[in-house]
């Protein structure tokens, strides 16, 4: 769930075309980049896929924070491979967005200018090694909840990117849980780290699904277009139901005194996260917003000479080829 609160745009196009488009979606057909599509559909998708791509890129930072301190060679290799997968996901998603007529550089500039968002979760810090486990278990776990249904999304390139991404994300989630097992079964200090990680990541993970969208017009439009498949509340409930037994197995306590199995609904009752905190994080006031954006800005600025150098060399080569012909 790396796209939160994506505003969908209404479309004021020819009603006949709109109806034909909707009929294709209802029939389960995939929309491909060259097909006609409502402007609102295109813009909403650019926003959603772009936000998802940015989340993958910014998401490298909290995990990258532990690569140089990973406790064994194997853990270091696994973490490196995971962060590399995330950069790869960013790449497929930017490519999917490019098919809608926006370049990767334009999306990057919009992110750096604060005009586009990334998931709120990456504005939380990774403070102990168990956080790397918790990120895989909870954050990737929450992301999978949303991304599995998105494999069936109506836009072809997005759907195909999701199919690839989901395979890797499930692997990451298992690796995260494996770290949690080691920590939860380890020394008293390791157990304390595991519990501390769960305490800090539980509510931010619930926030990843976004606030309840019961009354949201945008959600209704996105759901009709099959850009969004389930409501935020459905996904959050599914996540809690899946995660609670996993925490019990680890012998860890979910930091919610009101968490209780509800026989009637066949799911857990649980406390809502503090939505005022969520809105502050979205506004830029989370614990790491400033650092995350500074890191991305610095990478972009420091890399300018590198990108320019490669372009200049490519031009020289092209000119030399022309001269030789």
């Amino acid at each position: 769930m790396y796209a939160q609160m994506v505003t969908s745009e209404a479309s004021n196009e020819d009603p006949e075309k709109l109806a034909a488009f909707q009929a294709r979606i209802d029939a389960g057909e995939k929309i491909e980049p060259k097909d006609w599509m409502p402007e609102g559909y295109r813009k909403t998708l650019i926003r959603q896929i772009g936000q998802h791509a940015h989340s993958e890129i910014v998401g490298q930072l909290p995990e990258g924070n532990w690569i140089t301190r990973a406790p064994t060679l194997e853990r270091k290799a696994i973490l490196l491979a995971k962060v590399q997968d995330e950069a790869g996901h960013g790449l497929y998603l930017y490519c999917a967005a490019e098919t809608l007529g926006v370049s990767r550089d334009e999306l990057t500039e919009a992110l750096l200018a604060g005009k586009m968002k990334y998931s709120s979760i990456f504005n939380y810090p990774t403070l102990n090694w168990a956080d790397i486990g918790a990120v895989g278990w909870l954050v990737d776990g929450a992301a999978i909840m949303n991304q599995v249904p998105l494999q069936r999304t109506s836009f072809g390139p997005y759907s195909r990117a999701m199919i690839r991404i989901c395979k890797e994300e499930s692997f990451h989630q298992r690796q995260g849980y494996d770290i949690m097992m080691k920590m939860a079964q380890g020394t008293p200090e390791q157990k304390a780290m595991a519990q501390d990680a769960l305490n800090r990541f539980w509510y931010p993970s619930l926030m990843m699904f976004g606030p309840s969208d019961r009354d949201s017009v945008h959600s209704a439009q996105s759901m009709a277009w099959k850009i969004k498949i389930n409501t935020n509340d459905e996904l959050r409930q599914k996540f809690v139901d899946q995660t609670v037994p996993q925490a019990e197995y680890l012998g860890l306590t979910i930091p919610d005194p009101d968490l209780k199995w509800n026989e009637e609904k066949g799911g857990y009752d649980f406390s809502e996260p503090d939505w005022s905190e969520f809105f502050e994080v979205i506004k830029g006031n989370g614990p790491c917003n400033a650092e995350r954006m500074e890191a991305r800005q610095k990478a972009w600025d420091d890399g300018a000479w590198f990108r320019d150098g490669l372009m200049a060399h490519a031009k020289k080569r092209a000119a030399a080829r022309v001269a030789a012909e």
Partner: peptide, 14 residues
């Protein structure tokens, strides 16, 4: 590995 997430372009990060 210290570069992770800080390279000048995504392809270089990978």
């Amino acid at each position: 590995s210290e570069w992770c997430g800080h390279a000048p372009v995504l392809e270089e990060d990978i």
